[in-house]
Design a protein around this nucleic acid. Structure first.
Lengths: 233, 233
DNA sequence: ACGATAGTATCATCCTGTGAAACAGGGTAG
DNA sequence: CTACCCTGTTTCACAGGATGATACTATCGT
């Protein structure tokens, strides 16, 4: 899946920004998260700092800078605002990684995430584009998509129309090793006040730990989180 | 004043982002605002669009993209949030350009702006760093700065300690052709709930139109705007 | 039909960004 | 106290990426 614009420096810079979006980190950790050599990661991070897109905390860790809010002309996305408190709470409750996805055409984008600080865990960087052909978040977003999008996606999806009917009936979806080997997840739709599905909130983690039916454990918590998000829109 | 990081593509990309932060624009206008050749402006804008840092409105104009909010980990700056409504209102009331500045060391940064759509007007791009040695915004930020910063700035400023005493007494500052020839401005401090000055809000425009004593006309409106900002912090 | 303007694509050229290596500083184990 | 490891920062030869003039396409106004 195309993640780059074709402009190397821009692509790497965005990789760096995404790497610290969820959690601040040291330069060494930034190299790990981005895959960049230390000299390159350092040069780009300092460059972004000059433009106030990144800043360093007191202990030297890299984190998002104030210009991100300024370049947005003060526009606050209420869903992201709500996600900033709801996702960490769901992560703490479940002990697993949590993501929020939005549909964009026949792809989905991770627009917010919260993950446990240590241990084996599923990491989806903010900004990452994923296919809509696999995974519980995809099932949810497709289940409530327009018919044209459904037809387009189902042509290549690992699930079929029957699964989508079930997702709409049950109100949530789960998957095992669909998007990624060894990972299971469960997702629920986030609706706006008009009832339209505007995002999907997901809990994901290794199959060995969360089992093949994570919905049994966490559907109620997920639906509560989805409601909390909806109530803030 | 150093505005660049030394990484050409990053610097140009940020120039593009800043150019559309306040008001969306066409590609042609983007070239004017950034000074970039059309091929370069187009390539960078499309690259930023791929990363969702820019997006195109229905009529093809470039505007901030959703990733800016996402990369910020949902962090909302209440001052910028408040500025998004207060600054446009002040611009409409005065008919002139309005800016919000924050102090950063011995410089100030324009963190929000609102300007009239047409005609002769003072443009300060969001993200621009200005000196603290001239201009009404500088006077306000220095007047309430710590003594060390005051001493450092006053060594090179076009105003002296006496001016700062007067600014603190009066509660606002004005200037004529200090930061820029032909431009006059008036500024007021924005305080937080503890009473500390956290920003300066300014009205600026051509001297011929707003006169050499813009404070007479707009000090009351400015102070009201500063209060409106403070009440949202 | 024509000219102007805007958006998009191409590609020869040259300048920029890369990243291995070196350096400096701090922390820790022996 | 010394040696080693790790982290952050800087340097610079070189490879490759970004530039921007130009061409192309589409739309609009006269």
């Amino acid at each position: 899946m195309k993640q780059g614009s074709g402009i190397g420096v821009l692509d790497k810079s965005v990789t760096v920004l995404r790497a610290v979006a969820d959690t601040p980190c040291s330069l060494a950790e930034l190299c790990v998260r981005t895959g960049l050599p230390r000299a390159t990661a350092h040069r780009l991070a300092v460059g972004l700092e000059v433009h106030r897109l990144l800043q360093r905390s007191g202990d030297g860790r890299w984190q998002p800078g104030p210009a991100l809010g300024e370049l947005n002309n003060g526009t606050i996305d209420p869903l992201l605002d709500a996600a900033a408190t709801v996702l960490p709470r769901l992560r703490d409750l479940t002990g697993e990684s949590v993501q929020l996805y939005r549909r964009e055409g026949v792809q989905r984008v991770c627009v917010a995430s919260a993950e446990p600080p240590t241990g084996l865990r599923d990491t989806v960087p903010v900004g990452a584009r994923l296919a809509m052909t696999a995974g519980s978040g995809a099932k949810v977003l497709v289940a409530w998509a327009d018919p044209a999008t459904q037809r387009s996606v189902l042509a290549d999806a690992v699930f079929g129309e029957r699964v989508l009917v079930e997702v709409r009936r049950r109100g949530w979806a789960q998957s095992v090793a669909e998007r990624e080997s060894g990972v299971a997840s469960v997702s629920a739709p986030v609706r706006d006040s008009a009832g339209s599905v505007v995002a999907a909130v997901s809990v994901s983690g290794p199959v060995e730990r969360i089992g093949r039916r994570p919905g049994v454990r966490w559907a109620a918590d997920l639906l509560a989180a989805a409601d909390a998000l909806r109530n803030r829109l």
